[in-house]
Amino acid sequence: MTDNTAPISGQGAGVGRSARAALRVRALGQTALPVLTVVVALLGLWYLACIPMNAAQSVLTASRAGIEVMPESPRDRRGMSGAALALANPGPAVAGAFAQDRPRLPAPHQVAIELWNSTATVSPTSNRSLVYHAWVTMSATLTGFVIGTSLGILLAVGIVHSRVMDMSVMPWAIVSQTVPIIAIAPMIIVVLYSVGVEGILPKAVISAYLSFFPVVVGMVKGLRAPDAMQLDQLRTYAASRAQTFFKLRLPSSTPYLFASLKIGIAASLVGAIVGELPTGAVAGLGARLLAGSYYGQTVQIWSALFGAAILAALAVGVIGVIERVALRRMGLR
């Protein structure tokens, strides 16, 4: 078949092409196109929202520049909503919506430019670089995450092997999931500071305890995943407790481990960011958010927010890749 315009999804689709390419193209229509549409729609809504959100400022600028605006006096304009102002002055409102210095809602491209400027054009060690702030937050996140998950796995192992531990600790671990434990973050920072612990450690402690409980709950579920038949079989092999653990329980808990690691790293990142708020930390994404909100630097807030989002997506993505490789090697997927 030489006709390249043949529909890909019709009967006999993909004939004469590589089957894998055809699958790819079809999968593209299955997920990529809808996702792309949703993302584009969201961006469109965002641009649209910029017009009323920034209308007050753009109309004010226009009237200062001598352009005629609808309610003449600023006092009348103050009482009006952004949407009404934008409808009354469509021209100036649209013209001034996307390029303000301190907009109420920065346009997507402004955030993108700020992200680019603060990552690619400044040295990563300068404190104007978002890479530097992201690294400060990420180092605390990772330290806490490693501590929290290690302790969580240890406790889960204890819970699975000791009935008393299970009955005593497990209900509290579950309750802790319903409690906003992040509320103790400011206290941890201040108390650790007053006993002389500074730097990334206090933030790491918060990250650790936020990732600890999801990992405990997930790992207990995972280590209990083998069913009675499998456990009985190992008993017929006269396997010791340690052998049962390493050859059956641990491998079958892997999918649960990765699921809880993903929740844990996201929680850790939130913990590190919130941990930067109360002390007025000078570095880190949380500090950027706080400084931005003090000085009304909205573009800076949005770029820090997107920096945090990219960081979270990267961290979860890395765990996802490790998960896929590990599960495939174990023959679980």
Binding site: I273, V274, L289, T298, A308, A313, V316
Partner: peptide, 16 residues
């Protein structure tokens, strides 16, 4: 994707 992001970070914007 959004559910995994640190959405608390929108707090300063929304407070503004």
């Amino acid at each position: 994707f959004m559910a995994a992001l640190p959405i608390v970070g929108t707090a300063p914007i929304l407070v503004m």
